[in-house]
Every structure is written in C-alpha cells, then in structure tokens.
Amino acid sequence: MSVKFIKETDFNDFVGKMMEARTVVGPVAKKTKFVFGELESVDQLRLDYDVTILPPKKLFFPPRQDLLKFHGQKGTSCICPQPKVLFGVHYYDIKAIDQTDFLFNENNADQNYLANREATTIIGTTIQNVSPRAFFGSVGKNVNPKGHDGFLTRINGGWVFETLTSKGRDLLDFGKFIDADDAQKAEAAKVNTEEKTKSPEKIKAEGDVVAQKVRKSFSEDELWEEFAKDCFSCGSCNIVCPTCYCFDVQDNWNVDQHSGARTRSWDGCLKADFAECSLGQGACENFRETKGSRFRHRIMRKAVYSNEKLGGPACVGCGRCSLSCTADIADPVNVINRIVEG
C-alpha cells in the first residue's frame, strides 16, 4: 500500500504513542530468552530478539482456552476477541500464522481462533539476530508470508515501514512517518533478501525432493526407532512449534459443582497416549504405540502430509523444536538431511 520511513530517534516515540492507544504485544526478554508479551514500557521491546520460546500462535490459540462455559447442561459460547497489535514478528512466524489461519478456517471455520486472529494487527520485522538452530532460509522458499498488516525493516538511521492493509496503515498516525525514498526502499529490500541467507542450518534438498524421499522412508521402522531412541515423549517439540495446533478438550466443574467450562489445551502427537483410544472392556488401542512411529508422524506432518494444501512444507525453519529438545534429537534438519542423503 505505501512505504514509509521513520527516523531511529522517532521510533520509540512511535511505539509509545501506539501503546497509549492500543494493547501492544511484542518480543520481550525473559531471563536469557525471549517471549511475546504485552508491552508495559517502550524499553521492554526487544526487536533484536533471535527467536521467542513460544511462537505468536498463543495469542490466537492460547495454551488453555475455554470453548464453552456451562451452567448445568446449558452452554454459552465464550468467543471474546480483544483487539491487539502483534508487533515485531519474524517472517517465518508470519508464514506459520498464514498456515494456522488456513487450517482453522478450512472445512469448518473455528471462530475460537479466527475471531482472535481477526482482532489482531500483525506487524512483521527484520531478523536482526539469528537463532543458532534456525534454517528458515532452506525451507519453503517459494512460500512468502502474506497475513501481516505491515512490515518494519531496520536500515541505516531508521526504519522502513511498509503498510499492507488498512489495519497497518492506521498505525501511521502514531509516528512521524515520511515517504521512503528509493534508496531507502532499495536498502530495505536488500536487508530482507539477505536475512534469508543468514540461517545457520540448512536442509540439503528442495521441498518436493524432501517430501518424496521422506514419504518413501515411512516403512523404515528401524530408522525411525533409531531417531527416537532418546525421545522422552515430552511433546516439547510440538508445543513450541508455530505450525503445530493439535489440542485436547476437557470439561471441568467450578467449585460450585454446577457451572464449569469445556476447555481446550495444546496437545502434541509425540505424547505417548496421543493416538490412544479405548475399545471397551478395558481394552485400548494405540495407533502410534512406539516412540519411533510418533517421531515419524511429526516429521511427516512437517515435511510431507500437508504440503499440497499449504503449498510447501509445514515446517517454517524457526528451529524452536531443536532448541527445546533436551535430548537434542528433534532437529528436522538432521533427520531430513540424513534421509535425503541416504
């Protein structure tokens, strides 16, 4: 829509004004790591973050979310979107949000997600520091982020702000923006092209080759069991993943023992009982009984199964799973490269 420029010295003032008018969620420090959190002061904002522990999906699809509240057997819906600005999202996370936007909408539209999403203005930003396990430059290269409302690129002396929707343009009111000149636009374009080459890890084949070879490896049970030998079935790799969205649903009563809520919470296909169901008379069947079969399911889901409908792999290369796996076996790069290299 338009490409603007704001001077470095005016930037904090812009953020401050925006915070006065809106709820702003952005990257903030937590111990030695980063998380997306509601900004209370401008200096909390850490646009130099490398990666956050949890992806921004938590804003639309919280770890625990009441789907319905009930009184006796009468239910009420609790879809209650709160307008927010999600500020400073890296491009791989925007690609992930594009996926969850699509998935929560296809077939049956889930407003418990979509309403929150709709109420959010998303502003992307350049990756200034790169997470040590990231490989965003080597996955889904033909898929570009599209669901954001604006994008901020850091260049010499300030920021280029490209607005993409009216929601994004509305933020211009909060800062001293001027039209970006051609040199500034060119510099921003260069920064954003270069950032894609900065991820330290690399998948050594193109997405369709990966998909084909990984699918073929499905029946190599021994290989999968070997990959998963040290797996704790802890589901951390699922929970931190921006493109995982499985959930469990449980009902609980409040202490009055009459009212309560039907609540969904994040689940993960690596957890031991994820694919278990009871068959009656005490018998149950686990359709992914072994660690290897569960490990395989995640990799298949990330590299193969949804490629067709998503236009590329589900994995966006953020490297969160690699960082969060204490056994250090979750890294898709190691798994996929081993398979493609045979």
Partner: peptide
C-alpha cells in the same frame, strides 16, 4: 470411526497419515 475427538478436523487426534 473410533478415533475422533473434536470431530471437525482441527484437534489432530484422528489423523492417519495425511
């Protein structure tokens, strides 16, 4: 039909391959 949870294609529990 024995493996469903949400029933609307979201929760992932019933997924068999793709």
């Amino acid at each position: 039909e024995r493996r469903m949870k949400c029933g609307v294609g979201k929760c992932g529990h019933c997924q068999i391959n793709d």
